[in-house]
């Protein structure tokens, strides 16, 4: 079958990424590994909350932070999925230069490599939310969930994060392999500004504009509204904005970041070729 180069690059990379992420062990251990990490991450917040509030899990604040934290798992997964591929292929497998000389669309190849981490994150999100609903009184009325809003915002958000990941992939082309995942640390930093685990009003006034400028903030708000509308309405941050307005802001912000990501990646890619960085190993 004749497929376009971007589609073929994406699909092949998705298959390759899945093999790399999953075939290092047996399926049972892989499933356990995929579950423990997100559950532990959520448990930290649950315990912090429980200690201070004496376990008032039916409060809107808890649902707010729990759901925000659950969906935020996608952010490091997608950002790292796209950007870490550069290090993995350049320094670990040492195949980046071969991929560059093959008929491959590099951005689509990078997006494809993130698919495995997206799938693993999805498992983590589902398990975290299930644990919240079953054991921690996170009340989701499934009959009232706005599935259209949920699925559309989820899809838009993933595309937006993949484009943010492309910016980090560009930067990674120019940097050495350090001891961290650039996607994870950037996601960790953005955790502060996106209102994932507390409403933006808690931030000092001078920091709030950073949160308002980030598309992830609107994405999380839309997801919360789709699942538990009354919880989202309990906080004033975006109370004045309708779902449609939030969608428009998310789309506009994603377009801005998306356009920027294409130019930044191209520029970094050019500089990396110029410096001969594509087959560098920085094992120090």
């Amino acid at each position: 079958m004749n497929r376009s180069i971007p589609l073929r690059s994406f699909l092949t990379a998705a298959w390759l990424g899945w093999q790399i992420e999953s075939n290092w062990t047996d399926p049972f251990l892989f499933a356990t590994y995929s579950i423990i990490k997100p559950v532990a991450g959520a448990a930290i917040l649950v315990i912090m909350y429980a200690i201070v509030t004496q376990g008032q899990f039916d409060s809107p604040v808890f649902a707010y932070l729990f759901l925000g934290n659950a969906f935020y798992q996608y952010v490091p997964a997608v950002l790292s999925g796209v950007s870490w591929t550069i290090i993995d292929d350049r320094e670990h497998y040492r195949t980046l230069k071969y991929i560059y000389v093959a008929p491959v669309n590099i951005p689509f190849y990078l997006f494809g490599r993130a698919v495995a981490k997206f799938i693993i994150a999805t498992i983590g999100v589902i398990i975290t939310i299930a644990a919240g609903v079953l054991f921690l009184h996170v009340r989701i009325n499934w009959a009232q969930v706005h599935w259209g809003v949920f699925l559309l915002s989820l899809a838009l958000g993933i595309i937006m994060m993949a484009l943010l990941g492309l910016i980090l992939a560009g930067i990674t082309l120019l940097t050495a392999r350090h001891s961290y995942y650039i996607g994870d640390v950037v996601a960790g930093g953005l955790f502060l500004f996106t209102g994932a685990i507390f409403p933006l009003e808690i931030l000092p006034v001078w920091l709030r504009p950073v949160g308002y400028a980030l598309p992830i903030t609107y994405w999380l708000e839309l997801l919360r509204r789709a699942l538990v509308g009354e919880v989202a309405q309990a906080f004033p941050t975006f109370a004045a904005l309708s779902n449609e307005t939030l969608f428009l802001v998310l789309i506009a912000a994603s377009l801005v970041f998306g356009t920027a990501s294409v130019f930044i990646f191209r520029r970094c890619d050019f500089i990396a070729r110029e410096r001969g960085n594509l087959d560098i190993t920085t094992n120090y």
Partner: peptide, 26 residues
């Protein structure tokens, strides 16, 4: 580049947990 990614960004991540405590009035 590690100075930014390995020093500054983790500081923001820690700050996020501080604000969680502030949000729930710990």
């Amino acid at each position: 580049s590690w100075v930014f990614f390995d020093v500054f960004l983790p500081l923001l991540s820690v700050a996020a947990y501080v604000f969680v405590y502030r949000a729930i009035r710990a």
